[in-house]
């Protein structure tokens, strides 16, 4: 694990909006979290809460209709002895500096292994693309590196895979290839956007264990985006819970599972089955569904579904992120003394 808590990535108050024909969609409205070097951060939330957009912001690859309107992403790059803070959100997306960071410092793997490789080029071609871009090696060295990285993700017959076209590989193999490409330049931060969602359970387990092994081996930091709390429990050191474009709670893995504070996190946990469950316990569901990002509730975004809804407070004022413990932040009026002490703001 990390020698000391040294920050590698800070996401501060990130706001990203998409301008669509039917108006502005406020995809991110305050995403805050910090990631320490060598740690695995799980970003959890229901579909549509902005997890993938957060990943795109970190890569500075927001689709053309989207715009980062506020906040920042700061990457602390190691050079020599110290670290240098790079404000990614301030770099032009197509700039040389940004392209140097992508793939080299921060790499990403995607949700759909079936469509994340270009069908017209061999695996080797796409792997060499990354290697030749970021490393100063000649052709044979590049090839050796490529084969080695395929070997490292435990693909049998790496030579054969190297010469294969994506359609000749299975989903699990393709995801291994994606991981190989991502790790080929030894990035310090890996963003994994639901890397196992599209895979069957067995393959999922294999890919997870591979990722954990690789993390142990390289000590890279990982942002693991998922909606699967089981995966989080297996993979992560830290957890950031997102709801409708905001991070509502960030803390370490144990606190997340054993003493979560935010009602949404609590509700999420109640909705997963447990082995030690009483047979008669009915699995709870979170009432309602995630509202459309174009019609977001006022005040706290979770209040219409919240079991601990405070009338006169929650629907009127947006909660701010408060520190409830060392390394534990919650965005909820229940823990904000200033808010709950004056519930009579309404007439």
């Amino acid at each position: 694990m990390a020698d000391r808590a040294e920050t590698i990535l800070e996401v501060r108050n990130l706001h990203t909006h998409f301008h669509t024909e039917s108006g502005v969609v406020r995809a991110l409205e305050g995403v805050d979290f910090t990631l320490n070097r060598g740690q695995v951060l799980g970003v959890v939330g229901e579909s549509g809460c902005g997890k993938s957009v957060t990943a795109q912001c970190i890569m500075n690859m927001v689709p053309s209709r989207g715009r980062i309107v506020d906040g920042s992403v700061i990457y602390h790059q190691r050079n020599g002895q110290g670290t240098e803070a790079i404000e990614i959100t301030a770099l032009p997306p197509k700039s040389r500096e940004m392209r140097r960071i992508r793939g080299n410092e921060i790499a990403m793997i995607f949700q759909e292994p079936m469509t994340s490789l270009d069908p017209l080029y061999t695996v080797g071609n796409q792997l060499l693309e990354a290697i030749n871009l970021h490393q100063d090696v000649d052709r044979t060295e590049a090839r050796t590196l490529a084969i080695h990285s395929l070997d490292r993700v435990q693909l049998p017959e790496p030579e054969r895979v190297f010469a294969s076209y994506p359609h000749q590989l299975s989903g699990g193999q393709r995801q291994r290839v994606m991981i190989a490409i991502a790790l080929s330049c030894n990035p310090t931060l890996l963003i994994a956007d639901e890397p196992t969602t599209a895979l069957d359970v067995t393959t999922q387990a294999q890919i997870l264990s591979l990722m954990r092994d690789l993390q142990d081996e390289t000590h890279m930091s990982i942002i693991f985006i998922t909606h699967d709390l089981g995966v989080v429990a297996e993979m992560c050191d830290e957890v950031a819970v997102m709801y409708l474009g905001k991070v509502v709670e960030q803390t370490d893995i144990d606190t997340t599972f054993y003493s979560p504070r935010h009602p949404y996190t609590q509700a999420l946990l109640r909705s997963i089955p447990r082995l030690d469950d009483d047979q008669d316990r009915r699995l709870e569901v979170i009432a309602g569904s995630v509202p459309d990002p174009s019609s977001i509730p006022s005040g706290c975004r979770f209040h219409p579904r919240c079991p601990e809804f405070l009338t006169g407070v929650c629907e009127q004022r947006e909660p701010v992120l408060v520190q409830v413990d060392e390394g534990h932040q919650v965005r909820c009026h229940l823990y904000d003394e200033t808010a709950s002490s004056q519930p009579g703001t309404q007439p």
């Binding site: 309602g288 019609s295 006022s298």
Partner: peptide
């Protein structure tokens, strides 16, 4: 349409009732 769903929950004190309203309007 968003305005409507914004004002709904404050009209009823029960949070559960609020959800029902939202689902209805979504429907």
């Amino acid at each position: 349409m968003s305005d409507q769903s914004l004002t709904l929950p404050s009209a009823v004190s029960e949070p559960q009732a609020g959800e029902v309203e939202i689902n209805l309007s979504a429907g």
